[in-house]
């Protein structure tokens, strides 16, 4: 009997893409998909240990009031789980340690980066080396972008995908690294997974609006060293059906939206591998 794949989508405190994220997991074939309010984790009613695939959806954790996902990261680092001697971060660390998959989209990506889980150099998942800051335009924008997928990346989620068209919807999506070394290492180790590009999906671009936020080297998403943790600013869960595409009334498009491949790769991997 094939293995049962269990996905969790965390919500609460300002997260708002949990529905479509869960829908994506279901469409991709996950057997169990639970939308879990973070309070249930903090009260010990649910545990990450019971899942294989952790989804951190978009939204505005705590309003992004202290910078995107900052207060959210602070909660994961310091909030205690009721009746246990651990905090939420410990559950995250255990989840990662077991080689399970994590996908952070938009605010979820910001959260992973601010926790230090991405890029997570040398297995240190608590050391922040990159960030996502205010778009060069100084404004929140909702617009569709083309993404080139790095063929050399080890990222599980983008296997067999060469390019992808998705919407960005953020005000703080400009990817920045602590220094040059971090940036070089990201490239060298192929932890850069997706980059803003033109329609041909060929080169990373810096020109606005193809690169909507001024991200360094056009970086839109990165993974950890194992390729099992992936974060990106654009929203794969926003393109699950052709009618989500802004030009579906004028183009011949497949029924399935391009974003679904990300989730299918994750579910397929979990079903096959021992995670």
């Amino acid at each position: 009997m094939p293995k049962e794949v269990k996905s969790i989508v965390i919500t609460g405190n300002g997260t708002n893409c949990e529905m479509e994220m869960a829908h994506a997991c279901r469409l991709a074939g996950s057997d169990v998909v639970d939308i879990v309010h973070i309070s249930m984790l903090l009260y010990g009613e649910k545990s990450l240990d019971d899942y294989h695939f952790l989804n951190l959806p978009g939204g505005f954790l705590d309003g992004d009031d202290l910078g995107s996902a900052k207060a959210g990261a602070n909660r994961i680092l310091h909030a205690k789980i009721k009746g246990k001697k651990e905090n939420l971060f410990d559950q995250f660390a255990r989840f990662i340690g077991r080689g399970k998959l994590i996908l952070g989209v938009c605010n979820g990506f910001q959260l992973l980066v601010k926790l230090g889980m991405l890029p997570g150099f040398d297995g240190d998942y608590r050391n922040q080396t990159t960030t996502l800051t205010f778009n060069d335009s100084g404004r929140f924008e909702d617009r569709w972008v083309n993404l080139r997928v790095n063929p050399d990346s080890r990222c599980i989620f983008t296997r067999k995908v060469t390019g992808i068209y998705l919407p960005v919807r953020h005000g703080e999506g400009k990817f920045v690294t602590k220094d040059k070394d971090v940036l070089e290492r990201l490239h060298r180790d192929h932890q850069v997974v997706v980059e803003y590009s033109h329609e041909d999906f060929r080169d990373a671009v810096m020109d606005y609006p193809a690169n909507p936020n001024g991200a360094i080297d056009g970086i839109a998403g990165i993974c950890n060293e194992t390729g099992r943790i992936f974060g990106l600013m654009p929203h794969p869960e926003a393109y699950l059906h052709r009618t989500n595409h802004p030009r579906w009334t004028r183009e011949q498009l497949p029924e399935e939206g391009m974003g679904l491949a990300i989730f299918k790769n994750a579910i397929d991997f979990i079903r096959k591998e021992d995670v």
Binding site: E20, D142, E237, A238
Partner: peptide
């Protein structure tokens, strides 16, 4: 553009 017009995933 500055309004999110497709959150919740059902934009047609």
């Amino acid at each position: 553009r500055q309004y999110d017009h497709e959150v919740q995933g059902g934009s047609v």
